[in-house]
């Protein structure tokens, strides 16, 4: 199979080794950050907040924090890998090789998604230290996590190609990604929004669907079932996953196109 060629595996392995060998840079920060999130938002503040959708607050925020860590790391890994390679020009090692553009992109995206998934698991483990967690829809959860980490790895490729310096990467992560996640129903349920327009605006945020899908997989609860028309309510999480999957395929196809035309890579 084309995607499992020796060349593809070599690049994928190189990409995975790069972050695996630096746990202090890649896995420790999200672990520590999430200990703080769970301690402050879950224990200290959460103790003063009523249950949300029938869940203790600390349990309710677990899926959102998993999504936040997973997609941030998938994005960061892909964008850094591409941009750092461009900055120091060692991406030429890949570009001058006989790998197809699709193989290059899928190797970068796949490795970054793996980092996102590992971080997601770490955050879930950290959360488990604070509150018991049971997985309601395991397969749905796994598929969703693979899709959303691949999606943000795909966005990360674009970020790495368009960035002109390291500040651009910070801007993308801090000023675009993070606000969308924080307004993506990580720390609240759409049901808690009092104004209808607030719900409508939230539904324009793609993060809402990701957080909601992971929450459905983990806790068995989805805001979408109350937002969608009653006849389709039970299918709402699957509709979200389908849209996210299509979006992921589109973004990866765009990555391949950008590699093909050499955007940000060739003169």
């Amino acid at each position: 199979m084309l995607m499992l060629s020796v060349g593809f595996r070599a690049l994928f392995r190189r990409e995975v080794l790069r972050f695996i060998r630096r746990p202090k840079n890649t896995f420790m920060p999200p672990a520590i950050t999430n200990v703080l999130y769970f301690a402050v938002f879950g224990l200290i503040l959460g103790g003063r907040i009523d249950q949300i959708a029938g869940f203790d607050y600390i349990l309710f925020i677990v899926p959102g924090l998993v999504v936040l860590g997973a997609i941030s790391n998938a994005f960061e890994n892909a964008s850094f890998s591409i941009f750092h390679g461009r900055w120091n020009e060692y991406i030429h090692e890949t570009l001058t090789s006989p790998l197809s553009y699709a193989e290059m992109v899928v190797a970068y995206v796949g490795a970054s998604a793996v980092r996102g998934l590992i971080v997601g698991v770490i955050i879930a483990i950290v959360g488990r230290l604070f509150v018991p967690i049971s997985i309601e829809h395991g397969l749905f959860l796994v598929v969703t996590m693979v899709v959303i980490t691949a999606l943000f790895a795909g966005f990360g490729i674009i970020g790495g190609l368009v960035a002109r310096d390291f500040d651009d990467l910070t801007v993308m992560n801090q000023f675009i990604l993070r606000p969308l996640v924080f307004f993506g129903a990580v720390f609240y349920s759409l049901e808690t929004l009092e104004q209808a327009w607030q719900v409508q605006v939230s539904l324009l945020n793609p993060m809402v669907y990701m957080v909601d899908s992971v929450r459905y997989g983990l806790l068995g609860y989805s805001d979408m079932t109350s937002v969608a028309p009653a006849a389709y309510a039970e299918y709402a999480p699957y509709a979200s996953l389908t849209v996210l999957t299509v979006l992921t395929v589109v973004v990866i196809a765009l990555d391949v196109y950008l590699f093909k035309i050499g955007y940000g890579l060739t003169d």
């Binding site: 020796v6 060349g7 690049l11 392995r13 120091n88 030429h92 090692e93 090789s97 006989p98």
Partner: peptide, 21 residues
């Protein structure tokens, strides 16, 4: 323009790998 993350032998192994070796 060499990969700074890995020892040089690994850099060469990766490059050979990209060429299907």
């Amino acid at each position: 323009n060499v990969d700074r993350f890995f020892p040089i032998k690994e850099v060469l192994i990766h490059k050979a790998g990209y060429h299907g070796i």
